[in-house]
């Protein structure tokens, strides 16, 4: 369908051999630029320790070996005091709890913003919009002390609450806009039938808001899974390091890990994301596009 649409008004694009050649060269160039670093790291990680510094055409190893992956697991466990499986569990706990907390609170708050009245509504909403543009680092120092006073520094809760405070505006923004796009007649009909506001939210709005919630889940998942600075500073206890924090420690530590182990460690963090992306790529792209268009 998409191609038909292009064919209709792409006449001079199709007719021009110059355009045809330029697009092929430029797009191919960018695909190589994007793929090469990832393939190179993959290649490093599967070379045997003896042949790690050489390969055919920079990419194809002379000798395949998974020894680096075993080394990476051992290295993380011995030097970091946190194994890769543990890092993934930590990240999964933090991510799933943060996303659940943020979305469940946003579902209700966005409803108040879209369908209910309360004082200072638009000012509060403007503060939320402004806070979306604020970099996380601005909150870093006071948050650190707030979490110490609350006695939850170095626990999962520290990071989960910090993420919740930082990301709740995004959930509310997206859901409010979506609720407001739902035809007025639908909620009106519900009110006439005597539905309470809670029933209206649960039975009319929420079933229709599934795509918006999916968008939120994707955006928040990426933001929390990949987040680094809060996770590094609020959870300094090695046993609860998340994946990016553990990986950064391996990659930037003073004592050098050998290049094979280093690359295997990086690949261990990339491969699961790659698999999830391969399965859900349409949702990822649609979700991130939709999230951006809401700004």
């Amino acid at each position: 369908m998409e191609t038909n649409k292009i064919n209709n008004y792409g006449a001079s694009f199709k007719r021009s051999p110059v355009f045809y050649v330029i697009t092929r060269i430029v797009v191919l160039f960018f695909i190589i630029i994007i793929i090469f670093p990832l393939l190179y790291t993959l290649s490093l990680s599967v070379r045997s320790p003896e042949t790690v510094y050489s390969a055919r055409y920079f990419l194809i190893p002379y000798e395949f070996s998974f020894a680096n992956y075993i080394d990476a697991f051992v290295n993380a466990e011995q030097k970091l005091k946190v194994s890769f499986p543990r890092m993934f569990i930590n990240s999964a706990v933090v991510t799933s709890l943060s996303v659940t907390l943020i979305i469940s609170m946003s579902i209700f708050a966005a409803f108040a913003f879209s369908h209910l009245r309360f004082p200072l509504k638009e000012s509060l909403y403007n503060v939320m919009i402004a806070s979306v543009a604020m970099p996380a680092q601005v909150l870093l120092i006071p948050l650190f002390y707030i979490l110490i006073y609350l006695g939850i520094i170095n626990t999962y809760q520290a990071v989960i609450l910090a993420y919740a405070g930082f990301l709740i505006p995004i959930g509310i923004l997206i859901l409010r806009m979506f609720y407001e796009q739902i035809p007025y007649e639908l909620t009106e009909a519900g009110t006439v039938d005597g539905a309470s506001d809670l029933q209206l939210l649960m039975k009319v709005l929420l079933p229709l808001a599934k795509p918006a919630i999916a968008t939120c889940v994707i955006l928040l998942f990426l933001d929390t899974w990949n987040e680094f600075i809060y996770a590094m500073i609020f959870m300094q206890d090695p046993t609860i390091h998340t994946v990016p924090v553990g990986l950064a420690k391996i990659g930037t530590s003073r004592y050098q890990v050998n290049i094979g182990t280093y690359s295997a460690s990086v690949m261990i963090t990339i491969i699961p994301v790659m698999i999830i992306f391969a399965v859900f790529q349409r949702w990822f792209i649609a979700g991130m596009t939709m999230g951006a268009l809401k700004h």
């Binding site: 609170m105 946003s106 209700f108 708050a109 409803f111 108040a112 369908h115 209910l116 009245r117 309360f118 004082p119 509060l124 503060v127 939320m128 806070s131 909150l139 006071p142 948050l143 707030i146 609450l161 910090a162 919740a164 405070g165 930082f166 709740i168 505006p169 509310i172 909620t187 009110t191 506001d197 209206l200």
Partner: peptide, 27 residues
């Protein structure tokens, strides 16, 4: 649904606003 502010609105609003204020605006 309500023409004016209703106390029930706080039930929807407060959890999110509390977290937002405590961990974002106040810091």
């Amino acid at each position: 649904i309500y023409k004016t502010f209703h106390i029930k609105t706080l039930f929807y609003l407060l959890p999110a606003v509390f977290i937002f204020l405590t961990f974002n605006v106040i810091p």
